[in-house]
Design a protein around this nucleic acid. Structure first.
Lengths: 128, 128
DNA sequence: GTTTGACTTGGATTTAACTCAAAGTAATAT
DNA sequence: ATATTACTTTGAGTTAAATCCAAGTCAAAC
């Protein structure tokens, strides 16, 4: 797959894909003799994984570390696991914070709805 | 309350508090004759509200708009309500995305745990 | 066979949200 | 009274994460 196909498929610009690769967010993609990137299934898997993790707010720095460990082989499994656990916990905490804010927003909206409703009632009453 | 007290109370730097005020994220704080900010209860309420909303990822731009509407009075209630609904929906969507990623992380961790466990078993077996 | 379009690299620019620095004034502690 | 601390303003610098640009190469369509 060419970079533009991958870009299309995952909704990431070619610039971003090259940037991710250069930064070490995904392993080096193999090239044709001409030097053009040819994304394998595995490469696409990485792109998708990284897109997903970035979408949840994991930092590039952290993900680079994960990929680094991955490339060092089986010896690093425990470290990788621990890195994921730490990120999982951070994500969970963030979601809990957001859940509280969501509730707060819902409450505020309800208050506004009552306010607006009572205001409309007033207007109607005045019409009679 | 002085700026440093508010800073302490909410864990936002004095710089950030001044920045928020200047940017219109919170209404103008009243000053003493000397020109020093003197945060009222209401001001603190705003600071806390903004901190909470920023923590959930609402943009400064959006919050500035909300505060602007608020300062224009009752006439803007419906607009404020609609703004909050839009942000609530965005937040909800974000949380759903994050929930999926959380599940994915949990699954990956589980896979690592099995891998690591089976590796340890191997080592033990070899000892005998 | 030349024009078009996709690709390459490396470096510069952008954006959001702070964060810091410089230069100066005012209040407080000793 | 003087030294320290907290505050003021304006404007510059920082950070993360892209995103864009320039200059150039290559393959393919017409």
């Amino acid at each position: 797959m060419t970079i533009s196909e991958v870009s299309e498929k995952y909704g990431l610009s070619a610039d971003t894909l090259r940037y991710y690769e250069k930064a070490g967010l995904i392993p080096q993609v193999r090239r044709r003799e001409s030097g053009i990137r040819d994304y394998s299934e595995a490469d696409c898997g990485w792109v998708e994984f990284i897109k997903c993790m970035r979408g949840a707010g994991l930092s590039i720095e952290t993900l680079v570390e994960y990929v680094n460990l991955y490339q060092k082989g089986k010896r690093t499994e425990r470290k990788r696991r621990n890195l994921l656990v730490a990120e999982r916990d951070r994500l969970k905490a963030k979601m809990e914070e957001m859940a509280k804010t969501l509730e707060r927003l819902n409450y505020k909206i309800k208050v506004y709805d009552t306010k607006i409703l009572s205001c409309e009632k007033d207007l109607l009453a005045r019409k009679e």
